[in-house]
């Protein structure tokens, strides 16, 4: 009786061990998969596909993969060659901020990467909404700059305000801030990132910042202008400085 019990125990033990082994091995395999760093091999999977569209756009924006005729008006389909498509398939240059792959939330609650802002001239500044000292002046500078840009240029400009306090500045809070400051138009975007994403982005802009209390940050006051490909073109440093050069840089970039 005693002996069989012992044996039984032993069997269970072996079973346990083999289970344990399986588990360990599978975990090991999984770990290897997880820890091997992402390479960029999968980046270029999209090959340039030709697209065809009815020249009269009978079916709106509908496109076809091959040549043929429009089912509505029977005209020959034309190959689509829109500029925006070209920009999308263009490779990102080395200096472009679109090399950053961090994820951001907009004030509308959308999840984006910086690359999603491609195609427009970008005017960016880092602020935080609970700031009482410099940020209101920075925000005022941004509004002043925006007001100086003619309406026909505005549609090619995106003004982005990036929070350096991602824990406090949720999309909801940023939205409220946008409404409060009359900056809720299409041309304004507010971004909430992760702590490391914000740190990385600040480093790209050469912006320095430090949390000095739970609601207060020291930070550099820099407004940066990027061309539609995400390359830094102009930086304005300081508060209450003349915005003229920044405005000129934006005007130059938005003259097509």
């Amino acid at each position: 009786m005693n002996v069989s019990k012992k044996k039984h125990k032993h069997v269970i033990h072996i079973n346990n061990v083999s289970n344990y082994l399986k588990l360990t091995i599978s975990v090991l395999v999984m770990l290897m998969v997880v820890t091997s760093c992402k390479s960029d091999a999968s980046n270029n999977s999209e090959t340039a596909l030709d697209m065809y569209q009815c020249p009269m756009q009978c079916e709106g924006d509908k496109t076809y993969d091959e040549a043929g005729s429009c089912p509505v008006c029977n005209m020959d389909l034309k190959q689509v060659e829109t500029a925006s498509k070209d920009i999308e398939t263009d490779e990102i240059s080395e200096e472009s901020i679109f090399n950053l792959t961090s994820e951001w939330h907009t004030e509308e609650g959308n999840k984006i990467q910086l690359e999603d802002l491609k195609g427009k001239t970008l005017v960016m500044v880092m602020i935080y909404t609970s700031c009482k000292a410099a940020c209101p002046r920075l925000v005022a500078d941004m509004r002043h700059i925006e007001a100086q840009i003619p309406v026909e240029n505005i549609k090619n400009v995106q003004f982005a305000l990036i929070s350096i306090d991602p824990n406090t500045d949720t999309p909801e809070r940023l939205k409220a801030f946008a409404i409060e400051n009359a900056m809720d138009g299409e041309q304004w975007t507010f971004l909430q990132g992760t702590e490391s994403g914000v740190r990385e982005f600040a480093n790209v802009l050469s912006v320095k910042y430090k949390e000095i209390s739970p609601i207060d940050f020291s930070h550099s006051n820099i407004i940066s202008v990027f061309n539609p490909a995400g390359e830094l073109k102009h930086q304005q440093e300081g508060l209450g400085v003349d915005n003229k050069e920044t405005i000129e840089a934006i005007l130059q970039l938005t003259q097509y």
Partner: peptide, 10 residues
């Protein structure tokens, strides 16, 4: 001092 906000605290 214009470049930094609250730099006196640092």
């Amino acid at each position: 001092s214009n470049l930094f906000c609250g730099s006196a605290a640092v």
